[in-house]
Design a protein around this nucleic acid. Structure first.
Lengths: 342, 342
DNA sequence: GACAACATTGTTAGCGCTAACAGAGCCGGC
DNA sequence: GCCGGCTCTGTTAGCGCTAACAATGTTGTC
């Protein structure tokens, strides 16, 4: 490393080699227009020669911008959150932002606050919180950070900028599909209470049934995991009234399929099953699962877009919180059919 | 916000309120021992009163430590990488580090370099690269960053600090299990060429067969996804010689199960199947899948531990790159049995 | 009581960068 | 020729923090 005596080069080193002031180097790096072309190339050559890289801390200190967005996420081994995170990350990078991610083990209000405090240490410019629970969303209003917050999957939260998938719409599609196949009604295996996605899916399912004048049975409730899907599936298998089930996610639907298969109930001949999420495996379940697809990566992109727009207008507040809803779509496979006798 | 005139408080504001110098505030924040207890509480009260938070950029500028670790990851919608990432993140946070994650769409050498360049902009202190491909690992030696790099799942890479799961060991366990059940030999559906995990699993499978003197059939090769598992499964179903299959991951194993089921081959009575990963769904496949579990979160923790040890000794280099191998273990379920006739 | 040793606090000088201003050189118009 | 207005470059002053040193007071020891 020439002429920097061991330490990593700074702007002054580049300036010396290029025969200019350090400020001119800064201008070149920031794409300032008023730099003579010849000077610019000389500076660029010096930068290459030294392998110089601008010190981000010094820059952040003086510009008061860290270019870091804080993300609070839940269990990213689940397909949905992981995909959303991926979409967020790509969009952030495209906009020149860095992502600092904290994932939570428990989804309490305190855990979210703690995560955001941790991110605040890093002076993030804004937050994206994947907030699928009502308690979490409620804890997100009136935060003491003075920085914009976007809630992903924040449901109907009125006082918060939110990006979410149209859960009721997706559930409505799934339920309509089963009713149109000729099922008298549709049973529902819901997600956990307090989850906004559960609530939205229940709402859409209920609306479809009520519109059709179909009887509404109280939904069973699971924890998203295949195991509970399996256990609830055993209960559904025993009930000869059940001819179709709308399950709130694909993993539980897998458990339901397994339970039905074990007890000798044929899918879709005797019972139809619809899931939600369209995980890559869904196509290869036994039988391939009809389900509702969500465009997670679109959700991620819109979250970043919304946060960036909030960052821009943070000097002139007053605009009402925005809501961005991404539609869901039905994927028809072989786990649904017109009912025959059981 | 009292006495800071609108702007967010700085150390000098705290100092003024507490009636001390800003350096004493700094000492309190850094837990310096020589501060009188009474002074300390006065400073802490002033901090609380103002809601003061230390400016991380200024701190990083002067200490030359950003406390950020850069992570390059692949497709985190896959269970393994996502779990590893979770383990890394928890361990990093416990050690007071922040994580900056870049996920890659394509796994070329260039893409990895690009991601690392991006992270270098942020002055990360070290890198963790989830590097399951040979090309990626090869591109990781002699990097121009002058910062430590840990490769996760970097296989046998000799010149690089590596943390990985004992892939050959896990594959050996799976294959032995099938041989001990009485299968004459074990067929293998491998992962993609060039993936180190594929290679390791092939090696362990081959060693078990050779030790037992069993015939070694050329492995089929898939892309980890259920779809190719399904297609390769169709081919295996046609071959009446096949009585047992060791599939390189659970997702492909799902496809194989589906293919066998569709063609009327009973599992495990006619063909036994073993997977790899122990995804949460594996227990609910049809039939529940015997598979090899990897402790991903342990891998994540050890990666951080290794990186931190490299950071500490970065002033005194000379120690050889370390290798940390996490054992795998067999989970026996209902997809394997003693072979009967086909 | 003098002195060393320690505990506690303050003062000063940067870390590497950008913003603001200043200044030099050059052009055209009157 | 002079002046306003360009383009280009340099000088200076911080951003908010920590490290190093200096300067107190406070003990204990002989």
């Amino acid at each position: 490393m020439p002429a920097t005596n061991g330490r990593s080069p700074v702007m002054a080193d580049v300036a010396r080699i290029a025969g200019v002031s350090h400020q001119t180097v800064s201008r070149v790096l920031n794409g300032h227009p008023n730099v003579k072309a010849e000077t610019r190339t000389r500076v660029e050559m010096a930068i290459d020669e030294l392998g110089y890289r601008r010190n981000s801390s010094a820059r952040a200190l003086v510009t008061r911008r860290t270019s870091v967005i804080g993300v609070v996420a839940f269990d990213p081994t689940l397909y949905g959150p992981a995909s959303t995170l991926g979409g967020i990350e790509r969009a952030a990078r495209a906009a020149g932002y860095f992502l600092s991610v904290v994932t939570l083990q428990t989804v309490t209000r305190e855990a979210v606050r703690e995560a955001m405090d941790y991110l605040a240490q890093q002076s993030v410019e804004g937050y994206i919180v994947i907030a699928p629970l009502r308690t979490v969303v409620d804890g997100l209003v009136d935060l003491p950070y003075g920085r914009p917050v976007v809630a992903v999957e924040g449901g109907q939260a009125p006082d918060l900028p939110v990006v979410c998938v149209d859960q009721p719409g997706g559930a409505y599609l799934a339920t309509r599909h089963l009713l149109e196949l000729g099922h008298r009604t549709v049973h529902h295996v819901a997600g956990p209470h307090d989850w906004l996605e559960s609530e939205g899916r229940v709402a859409g399912w209920r609306r479809a049934l009520e519109e059709a004048g179909a009887p509404v049975h109280e939904p069973l409730s699971g924890d998203w995991r295949p195991r509970e899907g399996y256990e609830l599936g055993r209960r559904l298998a025993e009930d000869r009234e059940v001819t179709s089930v709308f399950v709130a996610n694909d993993q539980m639907a897998l458990g339901v399929l397994r339970a039905l298969g074990e007890t000798g109930v044929r899918v879709p001949q005797e019972v139809s099953v619809v899931g939600f999420d369209d995980v890559p495996e869904a196509e290869f379940f036994t039988p391939p699962l009809t389900t509702v697809a969500q465009d997670f990566s679109e959700v991620g992109q819109r979250s970043i877009a919304l946060l960036l727009s909030l960052l821009e207008e943070s000097d002139s507040p007053g605009t009402a919180p925005k809501r961005d809803v991404v539609p869901a779509r039905l994927i028809t496979r072989q786990s649904t059919a017109t009912p025959s006798t059981r």
